[in-house]
């Protein structure tokens, strides 16, 4: 039995290995507030129909610069400090899609490939010869082609979709780690301090060891 379990793990591992071979498209994640706010808007109007963002509160959307009346429209009578639930109850969503749509707050960190995965996945929809819609990057997906990507050939329209997908990806990257910018800017000071400290220790060490007589 245990051998069987191990074998099953290995088999699953191998199949995952095969899947990981799909090359993801690279995306340059934006960190400027206007892009994040536009991404937030798309997420709230498109994704939030089914997906929750339970670690993000309406107040934080307002802080990103999303217009106040839009935030008020989404939150309804809920206070600003309310966590963002999905507009469709989880069991209703599970009933119509076959499984509950995952929470999006950590999505940008919860998949191999992170931002590149989300970007590729959103733009990965295609129309199969039999008329059904599929996704190159996650074939078993139950999510419909929400950005209406499949079948689009017009370059201007494609550019628009790429921009939108990049905004959504950037917003989700922010949502997964809201302190990232603060962390990086603090990190520069910390490293700067450590460089000065270590350099001083290096020269001080030289001076102290110079007091030893040579062997």
């Amino acid at each position: 039995m245990k051998r069987l379990i191990i074998f099953a793990f290995c088999w699953l591992a191998c199949s995952a290995w095969g899947e990981a071979e799909v090359q993801l498209n690279k995306v340059e994640v934006a960190t400027d507030l206007p892009t994040l706010a536009r991404g937030a808007e798309t997420v709230m109007t498109v994704c939030n129909g089914c997906h929750s963002l339970k670690y993000i509160h309406f107040r934080e959307l307002a802080k990103l610069g999303v217009e106040k009346d839009k935030v008020d429209g989404w939150r309804g009578s809920n206070p600003m400090g309310t966590a963002i639930a999905s507009q469709m109850p989880a069991d209703a969503a599970a009933a119509s899609f076959g499984k509950a749509p995952p929470d999006l707050s950590l999505m940008a960190k919860a998949r191999e490939g992170e931002a590149n995965y989300i970007y590729s996945y959103l733009l990965g929809y295609y129309t199969a010869p039999d008329g059904t819609t599929g996704n190159h990057y996650y074939p078993p997906t139950k999510m419909p082609d929400v950005l209406a990507v499949a079948g689009v050939t017009d370059p201007a329209q494609l550019a628009e979709l790429n921009k939108k997908a990049r905004e959504v990806t950037s917003f989700l990257v922010w949502a997964a780690d809201p302190h990232a910018q603060e962390r990086k800017s603090l990190g520069l000071y910390v490293l700067g301090y450590l460089l000065v400290f270590t350099t001083m220790m290096y020269f001080l060490k030289g001076r102290i060891w110079a007091t030893l007589e040579k062997v």
């Binding site: 962390r183 990086k184 603090l186 990190g187 520069l188 910390v190 490293l191 450590l194 460089l195 400290f197 270590t198 220790m201 290096y202």
Partner: peptide, 13 residues
């Protein structure tokens, strides 16, 4: 100091 420079590079970046 050398250790912390490497460690903090990971922690912060």
């Amino acid at each position: 100091g050398v250790y912390l420079i490497i460690f903090c590079t990971f922690v912060f970046f």
